[in-house]
Amino acid sequence: MAKKVLVLGETREGALRNVSFEAIAAAKKISGGGEVVGVLIGDAVADFGAELVAYGADRVVTVEHPHLKSYTSDGYGQAFMAVVEQESPEGLVFGHTSVGKDLAPKIASKLQAGLISDVTDIEGEGDDAVFIRPIFSGKAFEKVKLKDGIDFITVRANNIAPLERQERSGDVSSLSVDITNLRTIIKNVVRKSTEGVDLSEAKVIVAGGRGVKSTEGFEPLQELANLLGGAVGASRGACDADYCDYSLQIGQTGKVVTPDLYIAAGISGAIQHMAGMSNSKVIVAINKDPEANIFKVADYGIVGDLFEVIPMLTEEFKKVM
């Protein structure tokens, strides 16, 4: 059966996020030839509608309201539920982002629906769609399906390929919703993430462990990450030692990441850390200890001092890029 599937489009720093395009690709599969409808929520988001269409949405519904400038579960919940009421969808796809993780369970609860979170792959289409997601932070995987009712998933960034961008046309309509009774007031957002590249969406991650030895020790890693358009991450050891913020932690507690390239510098490779990064496409390990566990999951390894190797690597990349 062809289904109508809604996709929540998200923006960050004035542009649509890649994960939203990936969510459209996921929605296409779930729809089984049905209709994919983009949903944009915010104070001024209508201009992004055409871009969602270019990436595969058939049409877009926008909800704009001054109270929707910042995300709150109350505000976005009211807006999204209004779209659900208007559209009566058979599927919903969100990014497994800060917003998606916070909002999806609320919507699922209101719809008394199942929700499959953090999906990394989809097998089959339409009614036969089966969803693959990591469990135990990627130490294992499960295949899950919805028993009945609405197909509701959140998709992990960087895993489902977006559709090719095409010049297409699709209707962008607005829905007027009265947003009331917000119980949360957002005061301020303090930017801590580096250089605007989000760890969970980064294609390249340069991560440091205890071997980095200090806050300053992360500087050469940051320089390499900047050059490669990537982000800096860390092991729990480095965070516990206060060399960096916990928001950089990768592992079973912390973030689970799947970049194209993961460079582990001075990271020994505790099982908890490996759970968070071992599904990266290509892993490079740099460690003084040739017996370090991290070499077991690495595609390429260099036995050496990261403070020698990382700057050399940066210089070498500069030559060829």
Binding site: E142, K143, V144, A285
Partner: peptide, 30 residues
């Protein structure tokens, strides 16, 4: 509301390559 059909382990990775030789050559090779 959901049903787990299968649980499985990720495919084992083949052993990687530890580069050898002079450090600057290793970096160039990498």
């Amino acid at each position: 509301k959901t049903e787990t059909i299968e649980i499985y382990l990720p495919p084992k990775k083949a052993a990687g390559r530890i580069l050898e030789g002079d450090l600057s050559n290793q970096v160039t090779e990498l």
